[in-house]
Write a protein that binds this DNA or RNA. Structure first.
Lengths: 254, 254
DNA sequence: CGAAATTTTGATCACGTTCAACTTCAGTGG
DNA sequence: CCACTGAAGTTGAACGTGATCAAAATTTCG
């Protein structure tokens, strides 16, 4: 993807976050113009850099164009729990920017490229164009759906099931923004990251990954994951793709 | 609380859901009128009755006035994971009503009294009064914050820490709608429910509860929980109350 | 009062953590 | 180009926690 293009008004409609929003609601040219005008600038941060720090006040929305990050909590005992993975098309700042003080940290796992606007400006737009308030709701609800599955994962699924579910979810989400093949995708996470997402130790995660390979359910080549048997994985991980309804538009509107 | 009062326009301003929304944004009389007009009716369902069934299409918002419910996932192997607890002031239908098909079930744990409106009507109101779209966002974000902590709980906290955190969270949420004392509250959950919320077996949960009592951190009398040492519990459970920012209102907006 | 649900206690055992060592790989400078 | 370094992946052994199963005690409710 052309770097200049994405930052420009021309490339805006192809921005993965805009593409994702477009699945919920039809945005016309003036909607996109108004949204684009909120953007204060484009940023690229290096991997391992912190975007949001637990306890800070944060008031921005970052529309991720490229790269991966994680939102996580660090506990006293040094353990880390990753709450959610941030990927292209996701919006950093949900939910941290809505709290008086962020209750989690967000760190880039790869180099991360995103467009930033202030939460106040976005809310201002919501008053002028109510559909954007609903877009924000829909974005939050999609994250709710993801976190709900994540709770089921860490709470009641076995380590093997968790891993299967996690990989299927990553594939599903990446596919929604055109970053995954039919049954394969690149996942630039170390096993430590995956372990912290699933609440597992690195050695055990490693064994579960080895088991999925040994059982011929998937193949791993470097950072590339290839599903060898999608339906077996889906059964194993209790995975069911979730579909958000579209945002209703009243007849007398727009 | 007077039953007729709550269902009437007069009692509407004191409805716990309205009170909760009032913490995010000031609603004037006409806002409340418009919201009240969406209500299709009041319902009371018996405990153990299902409100939403996994896989069904559901398109309503239920503003809970009284009682408790749980949103949960039932797995093949019979295990149940409770995703979140629903209490007075909460809105059932977030997130289920936004999906093509509900991905979880919601069941009343006690008798449950609530007011219902359709999601389409609410969205319609959001177009006429954009502040309600933001209210919906804020409600979803608050649930996001709760679920995020829940993931940390099941993923990386020890059973004792989990339980401490859970009880503090329940107390905190109940206090927000005036249903808890300074350091005590009624929690009408069996240990099976709490275990399914925390991803623990009933016997082990029972032992952890006994330990909290033995360590003089809390006392239990029937369904009443009394914190004997709040700050010790907060340290144990890594608990920090979260505060949502208020919804900004632009100056040029009525 | 009897039946059912819930809480409590105990014994056993499997699973997953912990700790440690070793291997492999990627990146860097000699 | 290879030696060196640190990070990431892999494997093994020992231990402890929390699940499981079972049964008793207690409470709730019809």
């Amino acid at each position: 993807m052309n770097e200049l293009l994405s930052a420009s008004r021309q490339g805006w409609a192809r921005h993965p976050a805009v593409v994702r929003i477009g699945r919920y609601i039809d945005l016309d040219r003036s909607d996109l113009d108004d949204l684009y005008r909120l953007i204060e600038g484009q940023t690229t941060i290096k991997k391992r850099k912190e975007l949001i720090i637990d306890g800070d006040r944060y008031r921005k929305l970052c529309f991720v164009e490229d790269g991966f990050a994680v939102r996580y909590k660090l506990l006293r005992n040094g353990k880390r729990q990753i709450i959610n993975v941030v990927m292209p098309g996701d919006v950093v700042g949900i939910p941290s920017s809505f709290l008086e003080r962020a209750a989690w940290s967000v760190t880039a796992v790869t180099d991360l490229k995103f467009q930033v606007c202030s939460i106040e400006d976005f809310v201002g737009l919501c008053y002028r164009r109510p559909q954007f308030g609903l877009v924000l709701t829909w974005l939050a609800v999609q994250e709710l759906a993801i976190l709900s599955e994540h709770i089921t994962n860490t709470g009641r699924r076995t380590p093997l099931e968790r891993l299967a579910h996690f990989l299927l979810e990553m594939h599903n989400r990446l596919a929604l923004v055109g970053r995954a093949g039919e049954a394969s995708f690149d996942l630039p996470f170390s096993q430590e990251v995956i372990g912290d997402a699933l609440g597992l130790s690195v050695p055990h995660l490693n064994r579960m990954l080895a088991k999925l390979r040994a059982d011929r359910l998937l193949a791993v080549d470097g950072r590339r994951i290839v599903f060898a048997d999608v339906s077996a994985l889906e059964v194993l991980g209790h995975f069911q793709p979730m579909k958000l309804a579209r945002i209703p538009v009243p007849h007398n509107f727009g």
